[in-house]
């Protein structure tokens, strides 16, 4: 057993959670205001590619991150336009956005780079003092990560604070629960939704970059392999609460890391089962997590004024 539950497994679980946390938090804002963005994975792929390409060309990580966020912003605006202004059916249009991102990122990759290459990317920052703690491997598990990991975890309490303790968060929640009431109180429902959906896009772009220039440091076709969809599922699993999403992301990435470890040391379980395990666990937990009071009642419903 000690070979399986090593400190490095826990450390890699924390690293693997990063893209889920970014994308999941962004999607939480979007859904709390009543918009389901199912295109997260497509935006992540585009962010992953553009961020990677920017670093590949400029060798500047900051530019890479900014480019990925900008890509997310543009795609987020597009999703907002489709779902808020055009009032399109959100599930179907989200799948469209996903396929668009999947196809375009692959096309750009083929045209601009061609074969998988790697970049240097973010390196681990050892937190002075704390990273030396040997006890239970705490130093290795928590304090030897790249910058984006720390940022992702820091954004969890920030998001919770914004949603629960600020007038902005109150507006977002009201718009997702009862847009008619918010409208009657003089709140511009469309503007709030544009804001949250675009913010969700930026966070998805960042999630993609965290994968391509920090976690894996490569880009290839369909790099995310569905991580954006898992992130959407984690929002439900986490009950639309940032800390719930953190818990879900950790559970999922831990199972993921464990699976890598088990197949790595050659335990006699068919590899396919191990690969399936995280997804099966997600489905099972979702069944038990589907009904929550925080669920935005106006989720997926376009807003129309008047009865």
């Amino acid at each position: 057993m000690n070979e399986i539950f090593t400190a490095s497994v826990f450390a890699s679980a924390i690293r693997l959670a990063t893209p889920y946390i970014f994308a999941g938090l962004g999607e939480t804002f979007s859904q709390r205001s009543g918009v389901l963005n199912l295109g997260v994975d497509g935006i992540m792929l585009m962010g992953a590619f553009t961020g990677f390409y920017a670093v590949y060309i400029t060798e500047n990580l900051l530019i890479g991150v900014l480019v990925a966020m900008l890509t997310g912003l543009v795609m987020g605006l597009a999703v907002a336009f489709i779902s808020v202004t055009l009032k399109a059916e959100q599930g179907i249009s989200g799948i469209g956005v996903y396929l668009f991102g999947l196809g375009l990122s692959e096309l750009l990759f083929q045209k601009l780079i061609g074969t998988p290459k790697s970049v240097d990317g973010f390196t681990a920052i050892y937190i002075p003092g704390l990273s030396d703690i040997q006890f239970l491997g705490i130093g290795e598990i928590f304090f030897k990560h790249n910058l984006l990991v720390y940022v992702a975890f820091a954004l969890v309490p920030v998001s919770a604070y914004v949603l629960n303790r600020t007038p902005l968060g109150l507006m977002i929640r009201a718009v997702g629960q009862n847009p008619q009431a918010a409208d009657a109180m003089g709140i511009n429902v469309a503007r709030v939704r544009y804001f949250t959906v675009t913010l969700g896009g930026v966070m998805s772009g960042l999630a993609g970059a965290s994968l391509s220039i920090a976690l894996l440091k490569v880009f290839q076709q369909n790099l995310t392999s569905g991580m954006g969809f898992i992130a959407v599922a984690l929002v439900y699993f986490g009950g639309w609460r940032p800390f719930g999403i953190l818990a879900g992301a950790m559970l999922f990435s831990f199972v993921n890391a464990l699976q890598l470890q088990i197949s790595g040391i050659g335990v006699d379980i068919p590899a396919e089962f191990a690969v399936m395990a995280p997804y099966v666990i997600t489905i099972i937990t979702l069944i038990f997590a589907s009904k929550r009071t925080e669920k935005p009642t106006a989720l997926t419903k376009p807003f129309e004024r008047g009865e």
Binding site: T166, P167, G169, Q177, N178, A182, M185
Partner: peptide
């Protein structure tokens, strides 16, 4: 309104604060 314009999951005070400027700026 005939159908009350309240958000059921929020408290009375939060419903009143909705859409108003907070006396503490960006904090509720």
């Amino acid at each position: 309104h005939q159908h009350f314009m309240l958000v059921p999951s929020l408290t009375v005070a939060a419903n009143v604060a909705l859409g108003m400027k907070s006396s503490r700026g960006w904090r509720l």
